[in-house]
Design a binder for these strands. Sequence first.
DNA 1: TAGATTGTTAATCGATTAACAATC
DNA 2: TAGATTGTTAATCGATTAACAATC
Lengths: 240, 240
Amino acid sequence: MQPGRRSRAVPGASPRRTVSLPSSDEASDAATHRLSLYLRALARSEADGRRVTSSDDMARATGVKPALVRKDLAHFGQFGIRGVGYEVRGLRTRIAAILGLDRDHNVVIVGAGNLGTALADYRGFNTGGFRTIALIDNDPKKIGGRSRGGVPVRSVRDLAGLVQKSGVDLAVLAVPAESAQRALDQVAAAGVRAVLNFVQGRLKTRPGVHVRSVDLKIHLEGLTYRLARAWRRAGSRAVR
Amino acid sequence: MQPGRRSRAVPGASPRRTVSLPSSDEASDAATHRLSLYLRALARSEADGRRVTSSDDMARATGVKPALVRKDLAHFGQFGIRGVGYEVRGLRTRIAAILGLDRDHNVVIVGAGNLGTALADYRGFNTGGFRTIALIDNDPKKIGGRSRGGVPVRSVRDLAGLVQKSGVDLAVLAVPAESAQRALDQVAAAGVRAVLNFVQGRLKTRPGVHVRSVDLKIHLEGLTYRLARAWRRAGSRAVR
DNA sequence: TAGATTGTTAATCGATTAACAATC
DNA sequence: TAGATTGTTAATCGATTAACAATC
C-alpha cells in the first residue's frame, strides 16, 4: 500500500512474484539470534564427531523448544530428512552461509578509548571470521600507535581509504556520546553498511546502513529492576 | 463472567485480591528497556527546564509510540493528569525507583582481562549510581594491582568479604568461557543476586539469581546476516 | 465551555507452541 | 513394517496499536 512502491509491470518482465513478497523472508532479530545458537551447537556436535543431529538434540543444546528449531530451519529451506534428522556438517555450512559467515569480515572500531581498544583486542571480535584491522581516532597522540594486541590506530581521514583497500564490512562505534552521530555519518559515507553501536542515545541512519545498538548501562538497569522487584516483594512479605 | 472466578464470599475472609495477582505485574525485558529510555528522556526534559511532558513528547524522544508510552506508565500506576500530561520531576523519580535507581549500586567485575579492565574504567558502568569497586582475578601477577582508572584487582578469595562489607549488588562476568560457570557459582555463593554475563555459552543458575547475557559476537553475526541478505538481494537483482 | 491528553478497552499483529500428517 | 523425526498447519499466547470515554 506504500505509495511509490513499484507495481508497474516492466514490459518483457516475466510474471514473478518478486514484487508481492519483496522482503517476506526477513527473519526477526530473535530468529537470527537463534540461528547463531544453532550454529554453535552444530560446531560442538561436529567437534564431537557426530554426523547427524535432530531438532531435539539442538533444542537441548540451545534451550530453544524443538518445534521452534524445526520452524526456524524450515524457514530457510528443507534441511532435514524425515525420520532421520539433520546432517551436521551440511546444516552447519548452510546456516553459516545464511548468516554471512561463509567469508571473512574486516572490522574497524571508531574510538580508541578504553572500550574501543579492549574490543580491538577482544577474542570475541577477532575469531570466527571477524578481524579488527584498525582503530580510528582523531587524537594525534593516539594516531600511529597500536593497541596492546597490535591493532593500529589510524586517523579518521584514512577511514575511506581503509574501507576501500581492505574491504571493511563492519564498524563499531565506541566514541563519546556527542560524537556518535558524526562517527556514524563518517563510516556510512566511507561505505560501511553495518554498524555495531555502543554509544547511548538515538542515531539517525539512512536506508541500507544497518545499525545495531548495545547499551551496556540499560542492561545493568534491567538487572536493578529485577533486584528492586525482589526486594519489594520480600519487604512487603515481611511487613504483612 | 469467567467460570471459576471466585465470586463466593468466604465467611470471615477479608476481601483481598492479593492471592489472585501474586506476580502479575512482572514487566518484560522489552518493557523495562523502554522504562530506561523514558528515564533518559525525562532527565533531558528536566535539564531543559520543562515542568510537564506528555506521552507524545516522550514518544518523540524515544521512538516508542505514544499509546505504548501511556500503557507502560499506566502499568505501574496513575502518573499523569488527563488533559495535562505528566509532571517531569515526579515521573522521573517514580521511574527511577521502579528501576531500583533510587539507591547506589556497587559492582564487581570478575575477570581482569581486556574486556573486564575496560569495563571497570568505562563511564557507562560508573555513572548514574553504578560504581565498580573491584576487579576479581586469580592471576597472582594481577592481584594487588589496579586498572588504569584505579580499580583494585582482588583475589576471588576476597569476593565474599567484599560483597558483605561493601554491599555489592551486581557482578559482571568477563572471564574465559571455560571459567564462566564457576565464576557464576562463586559470585552467587558470595551473595550477589544479579549478574551481567559477557561470556558465550549457556549458564545454569538458581532461582533468585538474575543473569542477563550479552553476547557481543552474536550482535556481529546479526549484522552480517543483514549484509548477506542485502548482497543476495542485490546479486539476484543483478543476475536477473 | 472547548481543547487536550490520559487511562483503558478492543482489535491487530507477530511469535511461539502443540499437534499431526508426511515420509524416511 | 514399525519407529522416528521432519515440515507444516492450527491454536495459543503475548505484545503492540488504535480508538475512545473519562476528565482535567
